[in-house]
């Protein structure tokens, strides 16, 4: 009796796969004004990332209820890991763990949009340039926006500085949240620091290829392409309570208010990081 049911399931999969191919080949899909292609993201990018997220990093997510079910919000996280995998894993957490299956719209540095292929993938997966007009436009369109204010200082820091938040730049992200009156959701990510422990940075080589740094890790460049395989650390992601920006909404242009709020967000994330690290005594545990 189970055979026809199995057959049905198989047939449905084949049918939906073919329909997907037909839609893609004939261009019958929607892309938003930032270039986000939800169908491609859900059907192609996310299944690949899910392997890393679930099976390789065994990611656990805490307090996902702090992420609003609807409306715009600015998700602010700590950045690390030499390659910005933490940003991608955070998009998986927002999509897979939240009941509303929300898409996190990442903000990327300008060099992401300078590079061929990378820029195309970034736009298709919903990212855009980290600049205030784009952030405000996304927030006003009620999107979740993900930002890592440490930028390269976070991703490119040495392994000995792990889980120490770097400076938060000018706090442009805060003024965008204030101007659009959308809440800030702090998030702490533990696990990304151990995937490519950065032992050194060969500055001349970095300058040669136009990258912000040239990483030396225990496996890269010694093992060649194999060195690109991230170490299987255990990941924890915790969403903090949303910070209401309504009370400061008219102070978006006041540097003191912006710095204060940015500092508050930074300290909240640092505090959450310490708590999470206690929950994870072994970086490569189960």
């Amino acid at each position: 009796m189970t055979v026809p049911e199995l057959a049905d399931e198989f047939d449905n999969k084949v049918a939906s796969g073919l329909a997907f191919l037909r839609r893609r080949l004939s261009g019958q899909y929607r892309v938003d004004e930032f270039g986000f292609d939800p169908e491609l993201t859900e059907q192609v990018f996310q299944p690949v990332l899910r392997l890393l997220y679930r099976d390789w990093f065994r990611t656990e997510v805490l307090d996902v209820k702090n992420l609003p079910a609807q409306g715009g919000a600015l998700v602010v996280g700590n950045h690390s890991g030499t390659i910005a995998l933490d940003a991608l894993m955070l998009t998986m957490a927002c999509h897979d763990e939240h009941p509303a299956r929300r898409h996190l719209r990442l903000l990327g540095a300008d060099f992401v949009f300078k590079l061929p292929f990378v820029s195309e993938l970034a736009r298709k997966s919903g990212a855009t340039l980290a600049c205030n007009p784009d952030v405000e436009r996304l927030l006003e369109a009620d999107e979740l926006v993900g930002v890592f204010p440490e930028g390269f200082k976070g991703v490119g820091k040495k392994f000995t500085d792990r889980y120490k938040l770097q400076r938060f730049g000018r706090g442009g992200f805060v003024s965008a949240a204030l101007r659009t009156r959308r809440p800030i959701v702090p998030v702490a990510i533990v696990g990304a620091e151990e995937i490519y422990p950065l032992l050194g940075d060969v500055k001349p080589l970095a300058r040669l290829i136009g990258a912000p740094y040239f990483p030396i890790t225990p496996t890269f460049p010694w093992l060649g392409p194999l060195g690109l395989v991230p170490l299987p650390s255990k990941w924890l992601i915790r969403f903090g309570e949303p910070i209401d920006t309504e009370p400061y909404a008219d102070r978006a242009d006041d540097p003191a208010a912006v710095f204060n709020l940015a500092d508050h967000v930074r300290e909240t994330i640092q505090g959450m990081l310490h708590e999470l690290l206690e929950l994870r005594p072994d970086a490569f545990g189960p």
Partner: peptide, 26 residues
Amino acid sequence: VLTPGRLAETERRMLEMIRTVRAGRV
């Protein structure tokens, strides 16, 4: 070269073919 009509036709044929092959096996 590739029209939606031709693609839809190809899709239908492939599905039919798969069904026929599977029906034969079951």
